[in-house]
Structure formats: C-alpha cells, structure tokens
Write a protein that binds this DNA or RNA. Structure first.
Lengths: 341, 341
DNA sequence: TTGTACGCGTTATCAC
DNA sequence: GTGATAACGCGTACAA
C-alpha cells in the first residue's frame, strides 16, 4: 500500500502538494507538477487510506445498514437501493444482519458507530414487546442527540429521521381492491406478531373490511417468510376455513400461500385470489397481485440524506405505493357464474 | 463522540492506561484503576474510533464483499454466511453490488481497498469475454501480491485464494439423478452465457448425458433470474420442444420454470420434472429438487480466513454438495405407466 | 503498575 | 504555487 508520502517523494514534491493534486482540492497547483504527481501515484498504485481520511475529517464515507433479514427480498431491495445511491456519492455501505433481534440490532448499531458511519439506516420495523427494544431506543436516541444521523425505513420507537410508507393505507387499499372484485370472504395472513409494520397493515385490512360490512379474519403467523405463508394456509385448510381471497402481510408470505395452493391442487385465481404487499422480485414471476412499494427509492432517499452534508430536512413527501394487479386475483363472480350458468 | 483522551481525563489516568483497559490488552492494570476507567467510559458513552485503530494497527476489521446480485438468494446466502462469521471476530462487512459487471467490480474493489479491508471476497464467478475482466484480474493480482487477502467463492481468473464447490460434479450428479429416475429427455437451462460457473455446470450435464447415451439439449438463457427460467420455458414450449425433465443452472431459474409450468396448466412432476442447483431458500417452499450447496458455510470459511490473522493455508477440503430430492421430480415410468396400464 | 511520547496517513493552516 | 507542520484518536515501545 503506497502512501501519499511515497508518492510525494517519487514526484519530488511535498505531501501537501501531492495531497492537493490527488484529492479534488481547489488549491492551485501548476500543470507540470500536477502531472508528475499523477504519474507517480499511478506507477506506485497509490490508494488513499480511507481510515486516515476519516480520522482527519471526522467523517467517514460509510453508511451503516441494519437489516432484519437479508434473505428477505424486501430488505434486499432496500439494501440495494441504499448501496446504489451511496455509491454515487463515493459512499460505501456496511451491512449488518440483525435477525429481527433488538439485542443484535443494538450490538450492530454500536459497531457501526465505532466505524464512524456518517449515518445508520434501520430497514426493519420495531418488534413491540421484544426484550431489548427499549434499551436499543435509548442508545439510538443518545446517538442521535450526539449528532449521528439515523434513518428508519419502517416504523420505529426512537427519535430518528423516518422515511416510511403508509402501511395502513397500503393494506387498506389492497383490501378495497379485493372487495371491489366482489370478494367478501377475505382473510389476512399476518406473519410476525409484534412487528409494527404488520400491525399497521392489519389495521388497514380491518378498516376496509369493517367499512364493507365484511367479517375480518386475521390469521396469526409465525414469521414473514415463504414457509410462514405455506404453514398458515395448511392450518387454514385443516380447519376447514379456506377463504375465497387472501391478503398477505408481505410478498414472501403470499408466495408461500401460492406454493401451498398449487402443490395441493387448488387453482388461482379460480379457487382462491391471493395478493401480497411489497412488489418484490419474488412475486413477479408468478404474476402476484401486490401493492408495489418504492423500496429501491426508499433506500436511495435514506442514502442521499446521509451522504449529503446537508443537515437540513431530509423527508420529501411520503413515498407512494401502487397497486399492481396480477394474475393471482380475479372477480368473485367469475367463479360463481360458472356453475350457475 | 467521546475520545479516549476524554475518558482518561475523567478517570484521572493517562491515555495509555485507559487504552490498556478499554481494549483487551494483556498489560497489567490495577483493579481500581481498571474500574474507574470503565465507569468513565460508560458515563461518557465512549466509542473507540475504528478509523484511528485501523490507522494505527494497519489493519481494519473490515471484510469487503463483492456480490454480483444481492437480490439473488444465492449471493444473499453467501453474504449472510460471511456476515455471521465475521461478526464472531468483531469484523464488519462492507457490501458492494457489482451487477455482474467487471468494470463495476473493479471500481468496488478499489473502494474496498481504500477502506483498508483486511480481505475482499468475490462471490460471483467470472464472465468470460466481458470487457474489463482482464483489467480487473490485473488489478486484483497486483493487490494480492501487495498483501491484500482476496478470496473467490466462485471460479475466477485471478490469483486469489479460492473456496469453491465443484460445479461440474454437482451438475453431473444432479443429471445422473434425473437419469436414474428413468428420464432420457432432459434439458439444461443454462442462464447467463459466459458465466464460468454456468459453463462448468453445463459441462457436468453434458458428460452425464453423454455417458448415458442420451441427447443433450442446452437452452441458452438471458440471465440467472426467475424470469429467465420462465422465458426459457416459454421459448421451449413455443418451439414444441417440451422435455420430460429439466435441470436448471440455479434455483432461481428453476422457480421461474415452475412458475411457467404451473401458470400454464402443466403439472410437476407428472408432466415435467424440474431440478435446480443451489439449495437456496427460494426453492424450498416449492419442494424443489436441488443440489444443496453449503453457501453459508462457504461464506463463513472466507470470513474466517480473513478474520484470522493467520496467513496460513486457508482452504480445507473442497466443500461438499448434497442432493436434496423434492417433489418436483419423479420417475419417468410413473407417468408412462398410467396411460398404458 | 503507570506515564510519556511517537507515529500511523491525511488534510489544513500557515508561511514562504 | 509550494512546503513545513500541526493535528485527528489510538496503540505501544520505552522509561519511570
């Protein structure tokens, strides 16, 4: 690893001059000196030390990302959005998996701070009641007050900048869509208990059902993964409660539901209509009806806020979502008409 | 951000003593001094500066990860394995997406080096013939010679440490399995042209088919994603070439194949048997038959090698893969028997 | 057992 | 236009 000093020696100039040439300083340097420093750096394969720069400037070009589950496309998209935007500013992202555990989040948060991350992004939402949540909140609040930029891309109980979609409304509108198709028997598969984002989506579903005078049926789950959806369906069927339509808390669950249905001889959308929330790549190939969330943009906004030195207000208007009708949902009448006619 | 100096002042000791207490130095420090330093650090919310530490020790606790596509579960698993193992050593992973572009890989590699990463892991394989591959190789070789630890988790043309599975053998054995089920009409959907890993898997498939005196049919694709599998199937069917069994270059493609089949009225495994390679979470919920690769372990090995100061030989015996029979494959006879009997 | 002092690679402030 | 030089926060000889 060649250092600036070595470059300067080779170019027969001072480190100051070398520094001025090699980083975009506006300090004037003569053409020929500029050139010789450049070639010296080139021949030595000079690479600036980010550590030294960070130490000097009290600010590293690092964005910390705390994801709940990198295997979940939802977080993968978010992470990708952050990374792409960060790269535009010469920033780099440190990725930390927290496995939906507040205690792990706290540890990772601490490590990220040690690395002088310019900002830290929490991708997942709170888990209400989980041990360690309060402790985490206290620590984050402390960090925020001491100047660390913290962004939450999901509902969180601490005092960070928040860039979040309206989970309630997204779920509400999706349920309304199902209702507009003529369905009345619509179940909601809710995934992980305690997840704030899920709670909000449940509320939206309930409200839509209530307004339509339809009976809500919320199926508690054990997770946000594909298996969770499959297992929930298995239980539903075992209990003889197969609904005509299903709204899932996320796309992964929805894919699991589809997997169960298809491998058990059911047809979509003829037998059951299925929809998810997220609009991730996982559901796309199946033509899953879903509420598409601007995940990449969300991540990009967070990264942009952190990378820009501006301490100014970061939040633009609330990110919009959009219904993406697929082939897994259909009008309720299309089925009842068939046997009748 | 409290500094060591501030902690030392509050505890009324020298920075040297404070340092000795706060990092696990084996230098002897008296009990009470130890205690006062600890409490001082606690009250000040002291966080060591990773930048300063890295600068001082010429070695940061950072592992750089260059992934081809973080949205692909294959790389997500790898990344996760790296992160988990790295965390055990107090290391952190900087994630960089390269979008399967050698030019981007080179840029990211450079940035990772600037951050004094202790090691850099390439998750994806080479793309033969892509512009920039040679340039990347040269740069990596230079870095390796200058001491940077570089690990490739897939076949690569540069001189790095390599921890890779035998793609040829994995594909060969999977194809043998298909043959053992009585299939003769087995197609291979190959995904991305030029990807070395895919080439090797193609070779394994061809060898197994050749040995069985069966006619190989390799379908070139346009990518490694689910859509790629779906599109390849569409083309196959449009050409009236629907095979009885399909080996896919990875699980994602296989899921896409399943999606096509199911949404077009075909049954698996009755009409077509489908298998993938990878054993990622994406195929699990569908009961996809696949060659399970130890992706998390692979990542862990890379991280362990880098995190351990040992410059010694890192490579254990070649990582094994394992056939995971699912419900998407069945004996060829079970179908031909039905109409005949 | 504790303290002093130097240097890691860089940027920035001054003087020339 | 250019060059010394002082920090940034930390670890660690070396001294005491």
């Amino acid at each position: 690893m060649a250092t600036l000093r070595e470059v300067a020696e080779l170019a027969a100039v001072s480190v100051a001059t070398a520094s001025r040439v090699l980083n975009g300083s506006d300090h004037p340097v003569s053409r020929d000196v500029r050139e010789s420093v450049r070639t010296a750096a080139e021949t030595l394969g000079y690479t600036p030390s980010a550590a030294a720069q960070a130490l000097k400037q009290q600010r590293s070009k690092i964005i910390g990302v705390i994801a709940s589950d990198i295997l979940d496309p939802y977080f993968a998209e978010l992470t990708r959005g952050i990374e792409i935007e960060a790269a535009k500013y010469g920033f780099v992202t440190i990725l930390a998996n927290a496995n939906r555990d507040p205690e792990q989040e706290r540890m990772k948060f601490r490590v990220l701070r040690e690395h002088q991350a310019s900002g830290i992004v929490f991708c997942g939402s709170d888990i209400e009641g989980a041990p360690g949540t309060a402790q985490l909140a206290r620590e984050v609040n402390l960090a925020v007050r001491s100047g660390t930029k913290v962004v939450a891309l999901a509902p969180r109980g601490f005092d960070s900048t928040k860039i979040i979609i309206d989970n309630d409304a997204a779920s509400y509108e999706l349920t309304r869509y199902m209702l507009s198709l003529g369905h009345r028997s619509i179940a909601f598969i809710g995934g992980m208990p305690g997840l704030t984002a899920v709670e909000q989506r449940t509320v939206g579903y309930r409200r839509a059902m209530y307004e339509a005078h339809a009976l809500p049926h919320v199926v508690g789950g054990t997770g946000m993964r594909q298996e969770s959806g499959r297992d929930a369906m298995a239980r539903l069927v075992a209990a003889g409660q197969l609904p005509k339509a299903i709204v899932c808390a996320n796309d992964e669950i929805a894919v699991g539901v589809l997997a169960y249905l298809w491998t058990n001889g059911y047809k979509t959308p003829n037998d059951v209509s299925v929809a998810g929330i997220g609009g991730t790549r996982g559901g796309a190939v199946f033509g899953l009806t879903t509420m598409t969330l601007p995940l990449v943009e969300l991540g990009g906004l967070a990264a942009g806020y952190i990378a820009n030195a501006s301490d100014s207000p970061p939040v633009p208007d609330p990110p919009r979502f959009e219904l993406s009708p697929g082939v897994t949902t259909a009008k309720a009448t299309s089925l009842t008409a068939a046997p009748g006619g």
